[in-house]
Simulated scan of single mutants.
Amino acid sequence: MDLDFSRIKNSKNLLAFSGGVDSSALFFLLLNSKTNFDIAIVNYNIREQSKDEVEYALNLANKYDKKIFLKDVKLESSSNFEKNARDIRYNFFKEIIKENSYQTLITAHQLNDRLEWFLMQLSKGAGLLELFGMKEFEEKKDYSIFRPLLNISKDELEKYLKEHKIKYFIDSSNIDEKYKRNYFRHNFSDKFLNEFQDGIKNSFSFLENDLNSLNIKLNPIITLEELEVFENLKDNNLNLRVIDKSLKQRGFLLSQKERIEILKQKEITISHKINIAITKDYIFIAPKAEINLTKEFKEFCRIKKIPQNIRAYIFLKKLEINF
């Protein structure tokens, strides 16, 4: 199995590990490519087997001289389990990345995961950016996410593990259809992928190229502290996509009502914490701040056409804005 890890060769990398098919295969693929990485694993303590998975991770780290970060939590099985587990997992990864200066988080999402995500988003009502939200390389605020297995199916990874006699675990909770992802996996995506794998791989590749060709500018043109300034894309739908992405990275999910209000008011505060302003040329997003402004600063903001609800944060942090 030939994968290109050149993009992260000079990066300090952290692998999200579980001991399952995907992350076990990726561990050894990275190892064989001589890519430097450490590992992080979360034990939710909902399965007896999870203790063995943690022990396996510890043994691999010791054998191959990898740093290992372990989070042990007691998470009850519930209808919100998938979301709660994901939030715990990614907050843990962010802490490790920040404290240890990692640059890239490597995850073992593969082709089955990608198709599941596509179908789940399709079932809820989604645009192009949501449907193809699972990309090989994604830039976050403080780190990047690398998903090198997106064009490889779970069956191919399992075959690799068996051929090389590599140990792995099967998560028994993946059978339970009370979890939405499992429902889509067992009833739709796995069956579809088994029959049309080559076509699905090609379609994702074509669609991703088409999306890239649209040249949608989702990244900020200015980032100072927690202030982000984006280009106004002159399209309400695209501007909402820009705002959505920024707020998700800050831990906020917009409701449909809030989206409507953003477009209507142009200057608005979300959840009493984040200010958003849409001007003729720019989109401003910054934490809410309250402070008395000097007369000189107010005049500066008027000349620069900086929105009212963004000014206090800029003044408080003494930021220099140059367009």
Rank of each mutant, 00 (worst) to 15 (best):
K180R: 14
F204L: 03
D190I: 08
N202T: 15
F206S: 13
D190L: 09
S203T: 11
S189A: 05
S205Q: 12
F184H: 00
E177W: 09
N174V: 07
F192L: 13
N174Y: 09
K180G: 03
E195W: 07
Y183L: 11
S173E: 11
S203W: 09
Y183N: 08
S189R: 00
I200V: 08
K180L: 14
G199Q: 15
H186N: 08
F204P: 01
N182F: 00
K180S: 07
D190N: 14
L193S: 02
D176L: 05
S203E: 12
S189E: 02
N202P: 09
E177C: 09
S189P: 02
N202V: 14
K180Q: 10
F196T: 07
D198Q: 14
F206R: 14
Y179E: 01
K178Q: 08
I200E: 00
Y179A: 02
G199K: 15
N182W: 00
F206T: 13
N187C: 05
F192S: 00
I175F: 14
F184Y: 04
F196I: 05
K191Q: 11
L193Y: 04
L193N: 00
N202F: 14
K191V: 06
Q197W: 05
F196Q: 10
G199F: 14
Y183C: 05
H186D: 04
K180H: 08
Q197T: 13
D190S: 14
Y179S: 01
F196M: 09
N182D: 02
S173N: 13
K191F: 12
F206H: 13
D176R: 05
K201D: 06
L193H: 03
F204I: 01
N187I: 06
F188R: 04
F206P: 00
I200Y: 01
K201G: 06
K180I: 13
Y179L: 02
Y179C: 02
I200M: 03
